[in-house]
Design a protein around this nucleic acid. Sequence first.
DNA 1: AAGCTAGACAACCGCGTTCCG
DNA 2: TCGGAACGCGGTTGTCTAGCT
Length: 312
Amino acid sequence: MVRPPCCDKLSVKRGVWTPEEDAKMIAFVSKHGSGNWTSVPKKAGLKRCGKSCRLRWTNYLRPDLKQDIFTPQEEDLILKLHAAIGSRWSMIAQQLPGRTDNDVKNYWNTKLKKKLTDMGIDPITHKPFSKLLADYGNIGGNQKPSTRIGSLSKDFKNTVLFRSDPFPKLPSPKLEPPTESSLFSNREVMEKETIPAAILGEGFLSSSSSSISSLSTSICSNAAHEGLSLPFCWNDFLLEDVFPSAADNLENENPTMNENRNEVTSQQVPSSDVRYSSPSSEISFVEAMLDQENEMFLNFPHLMEEPSTSNY
DNA sequence: AAGCTAGACAACCGCGTTCCG
DNA sequence: TCGGAACGCGGTTGTCTAGCT
């Protein structure tokens, strides 16, 4: 492997930073500011490569970083943004003041991904595994199931294929400790708290419990049947298909059959809701993806803005 | 007490993009 | 316009630690 010029010397130190190194970095950056990282180690008297210095500063030493645990509001926002834009950690982190992309990425990988998986939701597609399995049966015609398994996400395989109870019932709020249920915070709280509503876009704040897709009706109705008012609805984090399934296509060919259903759907899913809505069969894959991206930026206008620049 | 395991997170790596001479 | 250096990002690995057996 060819190391960058700043890192190719054997004398370059690697591994965990010591308090002394941190102190040198802080002292240097507070005096000279960040930038031109390749020259920082030499000027600061550190036996590190510039890349390592930049990473240490941006991910750990920056004075504006939050050291405390993620709040339920932050978790909520991460889930929403991940559902909307995927693993673009830097963009997600820009919406969370004091958090770095590494923070968000680690938090996702260690906590949120597991929570979703444990609750029967694919953390990549944000769709229930049961829905994925159902759709999976509609793809590829006579293809052998075993040959298709390989294209499934790792989490999906681990959860659905290698566990005895692939579709656990979602926990009742009655049974959940407060910390668990706080993952999906009350929107009223969220609007009042640190995260500006504008970041989420109007759709997210207005569509929570009213946007009912067929796949998550059962999830929400569990609580409804128990007479409980859930502070969130799982559909917030569930995405519709980019393209309709084969079954959907069949149905769509018969407009009268779906008249009532379409009517209901159009009322229940606000146009501003971030969803990978099914495009018309007339448009191409590329057009569908572009539409999807446009829709994303409509819902997250802040993602279009330049991040606030600060010089440390 | 020792060994093992899983979780958390810091740090590294590779690659694409941007900048600059 | 081109090429090399620097930067930024996302994925992955390494290390530490707490809890369990």
